[in-house]
Simulated scan of single mutants.
Amino acid sequence: MIEALLGDETFHGMMKRHTREIVELLLQKGVHFSILTNISDVTFDPMLPESITQNFKPITMFFLAGYTFESTYIQEDMVYFEAGFGSDNFGSLVSVPLDGILQIVIEEVPLFINLSTPSKIAKKEPKEKGIKRSMEALMSNPENQKLIKK
Rank of each mutant, 00 (worst) to 15 (best):
I2K: 12
A4D: 11
L5R: 11
L6R: 11
G7E: 05
E9R: 14
T10A: 14
H12A: 15
M14N: 12
K16A: 14
R17W: 12
R17Y: 12
T19N: 05
T19R: 00
R20F: 14
V23T: 10
L25S: 15
L26T: 12
Q28N: 12
H32T: 13
H32Y: 13
T37E: 06
N38Q: 08
T43C: 12
T43P: 10
D45Y: 10
E50S: 15
T53H: 07
N55R: 15
N55E: 15
I59C: 04
M61E: 14
F62E: 11
A65M: 15
G66A: 10
S71N: 08
Y73K: 11
I74H: 05
Q75V: 10
D77Q: 14
V79A: 09
A83D: 07
G84E: 04
F90S: 01
S92D: 03
L93V: 11
S95I: 06
D99V: 03
I101Y: 01
L102R: 03
L102W: 01
V105G: 06
V109T: 11
N114M: 00
T117N: 11
I121K: 09
I121G: 00
I121L: 09
K124I: 08
E125K: 04
K127S: 02
K127G: 02
K127Y: 10
E128R: 04
G130K: 09
G130F: 01
R133N: 12
S134W: 12
M135I: 10
L138C: 04
M139A: 05
N141G: 05
L147S: 07
K150R: 14
